[in-house]
Every structure is written in structure tokens, then in C-alpha cells.
Amino acid sequence: MMSFLSGLWAILTEPVNFIGWLGFAMMAGAIRMKPKFAWEHTVGVWGLLWLTIGCALGLGWAPKEAMMGEVGRILYVHVPAAWIAMVVFTIAFVSALGYLFSGRLGWDWAVEAACEVGVVLNGLLLVLGSIFAKPTWNTWWTWDPRLTASLVMMLTFIGVILLRGAVRDPNRRATWTGVATIVAYLNIPITYMSVRWWASMHQQQSTPATMNDEMKMVMRMCAWAFLMISIWFIARRWRLAQANAMAEMPEPLEIPKGAR
């Protein structure tokens, strides 16, 4: 228990994590103070700033990897894409529960937004992983448990999006999407555990102890940047879903002139 608390304290006070805490504070401030621009632009710009700094440090300041050399630097975008894809799918999962228990369509728009952003991140993860694999493993692709699980994860959520497009009635569509999202979320623990459950080509998760300090810092910086940018995308996509829903609503009945 004590070691858990001290571990938590270390994460909370790690300097690089202040990128995240400050980002959330700015987000909360922007939501509260209602500026003229949409609140999500604050985290969007904050994320882009740290993505730029993170990539620059990753390419120029962090040491090259002892075994893989310069190629190992793709880690700074490959790993954050994987982490944040899972976080975004979790947002979709929670929103699906939110809709099914509350019946509010606002949650449903969040499911729609998060599923799409998650698929984009998952696609990025697979492409970056493939580019990483060629010079290190000597193959673009292999059907190992981790790679297969990550691909199935993306295809499942593409399936959720397709299902969504096939249902007309907004409430029924929201219910079906919610149920499908909850079942599809099964892929996230499977993908995460795949390297532990089955022997695979992909190595197991690194821990803070197995990674050089500079590399660790840059990777966390980029992960926060990915998270902030993803929140930005989800919020933008949510507004679009809301606008679509408004356009979809039937026109109000016209009241004839002269009627009371």
C-alpha cells in the first residue's frame, strides 16, 4: 500500500507530467470562463506545442538506442499512439454506458467521436509499428498475437462505425452503437494482455525500470501531446455529431397563419 502511494506520488509530481496537469487546468479554465473561441482549442494548441517539442527532443536530444540505433526513435510516436488509442476507446466505452443508462444523445455523440478518433490512432499505431518492425525485426508484418489483436481491435471499431451508419432512427442507432461499443471494448484488454498471455514477436511492456531516463521523459511528453490532441479531435467531432443530429431532426410543424 505504501509503495503504491509513493509510486502514485512520484507519477503525480514527475515534472514532465505537469504538461498534462496544466493542460487539464487550462481546459477546465476555458470551459468555465467561456471565451469567444471553443474551449477545446486550448488543449489542441497545447498538445501541438508539446508534440513539436517532444518530436524535436526525440530526434535530436534523447540518445539513440543501443541495439536499434536511430531507428528506435520512432518509439516516441508509436507507443503514445498505442496508449492513447486505448484511452480513447475507453472514452467510447464509458460514453456508451453513459448513453445506455441515461438515454441522453450527448453521450451517443461522444461514442461516435471517440470511436472514429480511436480508429485513426489505431491505424497510426499499426503503420508506425510496421515501419518500426521492418528495420528491427526484419519484417513489415507478422501474424503474432499482439499484431493480430491490434488489427482485430481496429477492424472491430470500424465495424461499429459501419453499423452506426446503417441505422436510421437516432435512438435505436444510439442503442445499437452503445451495445456494439461495449462488446468491442473487449479487444482492449486482449490487446494489452496479448504479449503476456501468448509467446509473441512483440516484446512485453517496458516498465520505467527498463528504459533510459531521457527516452522515458520524451515518450511521456509525446503521450501527453497525443492525449491533448485527441481530446481536441473528439470535442470537434462531438460538435459535428451534434450539428448532424440537429439537421436530422424533423422540421417543426408549421402553424397556419391566423390560427391561434
Partner: peptide, 28 residues
């Protein structure tokens, strides 16, 4: 195909002990 471990280190004169690089092969 060449596996690598979950260790990421800076090159520091001596190279990683190669025996550590197949540690993840032991499972399963």
C-alpha cells in the same frame, strides 16, 4: 526475424548483454 527485449538503453561503451535480449522468449 530478430526479437528485441523491452529494454531501451543509451549506447554506453559496452553493449547490452545479449542474454537479456531473449528474456521475453522464455514465457509461453
Amino acid at each position: 526475424m530478430v526479437k528485441h527485449s523491452n529494454e531501451y538503453k543509451a549506447p554506453e561503451g559496452t553493449e547490452t548483454d545479449p542474454r537479456k535480449l531473449y528474456s521475453t522468449l522464455d514465457q509461453g
